[in-house]
Each structure stands twice: as structure tokens, then as C-alpha cells.
Design a binder for these strands. Sequence first.
DNA 1: CTGAAAGCGCTTACAG
DNA 2: CTGAAAGCGCTTACAG
Lengths: 342, 342
Amino acid sequence: MTTIKDIARISGYSIGTVSRVLNDHPDVSDVAREEIVQIVKEYDFIPNANAKKLKQRPKGIAILLKGSSNFLFADILEKIQTAMIKSEEETTVIYLDEDENEVTAAIRIVKERKPKGIIFLGGNLKYFQESFDQITIPAVLLTNNAMNLHFDNLSSYSTDDTAACQAMTEYCIHLGHKNIGIVGGNADSSETQVSYRRIQGCIAAFDKHNIPFDKDRQYEPCRFSMQDGYDATARLLKRDPSLTAVIALGDVIAIGALRAANDLGLRVPEDVSITGFDGIEMTRYTIPRLTTVAQDTSSLALKCSIDIMQRTHYKYESENEIIPFRIMERESVRTIKEKRKL
Amino acid sequence: MTTIKDIARISGYSIGTVSRVLNDHPDVSDVAREEIVQIVKEYDFIPNANAKKLKQRPKGIAILLKGSSNFLFADILEKIQTAMIKSEEETTVIYLDEDENEVTAAIRIVKERKPKGIIFLGGNLKYFQESFDQITIPAVLLTNNAMNLHFDNLSSYSTDDTAACQAMTEYCIHLGHKNIGIVGGNADSSETQVSYRRIQGCIAAFDKHNIPFDKDRQYEPCRFSMQDGYDATARLLKRDPSLTAVIALGDVIAIGALRAANDLGLRVPEDVSITGFDGIEMTRYTIPRLTTVAQDTSSLALKCSIDIMQRTHYKYESENEIIPFRIMERESVRTIKEKRKL
DNA sequence: CTGAAAGCGCTTACAG
DNA sequence: CTGAAAGCGCTTACAG
């Protein structure tokens, strides 16, 4: 393994000068620079990154993304990287398992890579409560509201899950649906989890419009995957064939739901309406196209990028902002004719 | 930032002893161990990983995955990790951009992390030709055949893209299709790219059955995304409405194709048949379910895992193996009645 | 512009 | 079982 020492020996210059060339320092003679660059190329020399970081000062932004095949996060990530490319700052993405503790991971990464700031693409508020106090550099949490955590080096930009689900439910109600099923998440979960907040939104809509909701009959929990969405929707629809609409708490669940309804011989939306949540790309290609509530990934990405750049460079305050969502009216929900009027 | 030095000072032991405790070395007294562990916990001490790696010997397997939202690779990755978890070896996944040079990245990673072995999930043979010779540790390339590269520290396990596409095309031909379109990739690309090999497979089938193929009319290039698949298929189908089947060179393309046909008022498979390639999860949920050629991700993952473990631990030879594919007959292809017989 | 040297935070023979 | 010390491959004041 060739090291900087070898390059120094071969070039006849000192280690220090080689280091300066390697790091584009200005105070090196052109002759020295050329000779050293030449030898570095010849030997395909790449400096040992660990040794570098041992001395180096904080640099770059670390992006922790939870769930490597999370379509929503993948979308946001792409937009963050587009936004960040203009700034000088380098960006490193670290993919975490769905159920990994992202704060613990972040603490480790801060030690290892010494980033100037961190972006959390998704995160469990509980983990933040437990150990985010060990992180002292600026950070941004996306798609989850960190308001109640009160860390002054943590900003957050998120969609109001509860309001969004309430809006989607009301959308269905206004179209005449009264017997609506919900699929996804875990009703017994706590406020720190998205599915809980989303379910609360649905229930708020029912309450507001005086529509009864029988959880045992109209709700079916499931994880956020197509397969689970498929199974849960099949159970739900079999248990209560009178349901005219099913609100899936995530788009991947909805895609499974579409298929499940189909396999039960139900047409969407003629026989049963189905809605999603997130607004991932795939929902524009399903048959029928999925009506869903879209999180504003562009704003989320942009605000996050600006925030982290500002706070890593200057003394800005962190903030917690709710980004507006949008109901994407597409093809998977139909209008129910008022039976009473017949 | 607390370091090993602080822990040593506070505990009253030497740095060496603290290091031994940290690394679970046996020759430390229980008293010392307990005291030190206690203090480490108290201070939430995490050793600096860079400093560790500066001295440490090779460890773990690095997995380089090209294209962070590549569904096929995501699937294989999951299976590799399941297989590897049983072995002692740690595994690190590094996600690369679709168009990044994975070999250059690997060279850097070898220096930085000192892994014992590398797994490439996807890769461009051209990059391997150019600079894989700088890598001397055992490596495995997945879904691409490295046979002709002749590196004796590089194994490969792959699907025969050409044979698979030929088989899928023949499948359609046997069902009576004669006027078949192809969508995806870039016909002018070189042998080192999958799309070239897949197209060759289709053409081989046409030749074998004496079916004429007019590239300008029946072929439409496109990148591997739903949007591109949608656009390309729309162009293809408009240009030649007589096509009875469209072979998409990737599943995501096929998903776009499904939607495009639909928007053109064509029913799948009644009016036009559509096939995919890869066998990703989503193809089981499309409406209709997609007929596709499935790569055997389980075998790919298992063979790769066994290979890398063997070659990092013992003196095994590298090998290049072709893993059988499977045509998944589902719902998106129909049988054409022989018009002549009417 | 260049070199000698201290130091980053660890690990690991080597003595004892 | 434990400590003192060399060393991993770099960076960076400090002199000159």
C-alpha cells in the first residue's frame, strides 16, 4: 500500500509538501506541484481517508435515510441533493434500516465523519427524546415534527399527518361516502408514530360529520408494504362488504389494496374507492391512478437544504415548520349518489 | 469530545487497558473491566472509528449497490444480508449513484474501510476492465458476467440476459405473436451493457422463427424508469398500432408501458400484451399482473454470500456462474388466435 | 515556498 | 494482568 511517505520519498519532497499538493494549498511552487501530481498519478495514490479525518475539521452534511426502499424519502433525497449541489457543501447519504435507531447512528457518525450538519429523513421522536442531547451540531428532521422536543439545534419540516388524513377523509365524505374503512399502521401506537396521528385525523373527520366509526369493523392494521396492504385490505373488505371506500395510510399499502379489491372482484372506484398517502411516483402509474394526499417533497427538500446551510454557516435559529399537503384528485375515488334522493 | 485518554485518566487505568476492555480482550482483570465499562457508559464514550481503522486489520464485507432505488438490487441485498447474518462477518452497504464508477468507488473504500471482501450489486464491465486490477481482495459481481475479464480475485453470478430475452420473446411467439415491439435501453450500446444483450436476445428469437424485425418501427429506446417507459411505449404504440405485444426490457419500464397502453385506450392483454424483466415485487400487484422473466434473486444472493465467505477465509478459486431465470406467466400476455385459420 | 516535528485517537507488541 | 511507548497515515502550525 503506497502512502504519503512513499510519494514524498519518490518525489524527493517532504511529506508536508506532498500533503499541501494533495489538498490544493496555494503555497507550493509550480515545479513541486507538477512533479508530485505526476507521481501521485503514476502510483494511483489515494490518501487514507481515516488518517485525514483524524485531524480534519468538520465538513459536509450527513443525510440519514431510514428505510432504503422508502419511495417518499428517495424522492425527497433526490431533491435535497439537487438543492445542495449548488452550495459548496459535500453531502453523504447513509441508509439505515427501517427499525434502526437513527439518533444512535447519528452520534456514531458525528464521531466518525465529523459532518457540520445532519439531515434526518424520517425518524422516531422517541429516539430523539432519549439521546439527541448528545448531538450538538445543527440538524434537521424531515417529515416529523420536532416542535415538542425543544432542542435548539434541531429544526423540523413536516406534513401535518393528522390534518392531511382528516382532509382526505372529509374529501371522501363530501363525495357521499359514509362507510369508510381504514387500513395501515397500528391503532394502539403512540403519538410519536405517524400511523397514530393519521388515524386520529380520520377519526376527527368522522366525529366532525357525525359519522360513527367502529374500529373493530372498519379498521385493519398493517405494516407499510404492498404485501401487508394487500392482506389487510382483503381482510377488511371481506369482513365488511358494505364499505364504499378504503383509506390506506400509505401509498404502498394502497397499491396492495388496489390489487386486493381487484382480486375480490371489486372494481375501483366503481365498487369501492381507495385512497393513499404520500404521493409517491408510482401512484401516477397505477390502474386506476391513485387518489392520494401528496406531501410537498419539493418544499420539504428546499426548506431543509436552506435551513441546514444557514445554520451550519451562520447563527440562525432552528425552526419547526408545517408544510402544506395537497389532495391529488385522481381516479380511484368515485362520487356516491345520495340514495335518499332516489 | 471525550477520548480514550479521558477514560483512562478518569478510571485510573492506562490507555492500553481501556483499549483492551473496549475490544473485549480476555487478559483484563474483572475489576478493571467492570470499572472501565462503568465509566465508558457513564460518559457515553464511543471510540473514534477513524483512529481505530488506522491500525486495524481488514474486516467485514463491503456491498456496493448501484442505484439507490433499484428494486431488483434492493431485493437481492435483503437476501444477502439474511444469508450473511449467520456468518460472523459484518456487512456494510454503500449506495452508489446509477452512473457512478463503482470500481473507482471500491478502490477508495478498500483504502478507507479495509474490508476483507467486496460485493458489487450491479456494475459496468467497462469500469472493471479499466481499473479493477487495483483491487486485490476477493470480490463478487452480481447480475453481470465477469468471465471475459479474467481477474482471478473476481467471481460473478448472473442471469443470461440474452437467453432470457430470447426465451421471453419465443414465449410470445409461441402464443401467436408475430408483430412484437421492444422498449428500453439503447440499441447502439455495447456488449458491456445489459440492454444491448437483452435486445440481442429478442433479435435472436425473431431470427430463429424467421420473423422480420424492423428496428426503426418496432424498437423504442428508453432509460429504466416508469416515466421513460411510459413515454417510449406511447411513442411505439402510436407509431405502430399493429403491434400485438410489447417486450419491455425492465419491469419499471413495463409498469410505465401498462399505463401508456391504458391511456391509449388499449386493454392489456386483450388489445396488446406487455412483458417485463427482473421479476420485482411490484409486478405481482399491477393490474393486470405482469408477465415477466424473473431473475433468481435467492440463488444469486446465496451463491454470492457463500462465495465471498469462502474466498475471504480460505484459498478458493473465483468462479463465473450463470444462474437460471424463470418466465413468470401471469396476466399481461394473451394468446393470439391464428387469423389465417378463420 | 519548504521541511521537521508535534499531534490526531487509537492498537498492540514488548516488558514486567 | 497492566503500563509505557511505538506506530498507523495524515495535517498543520512553526521556523526558516
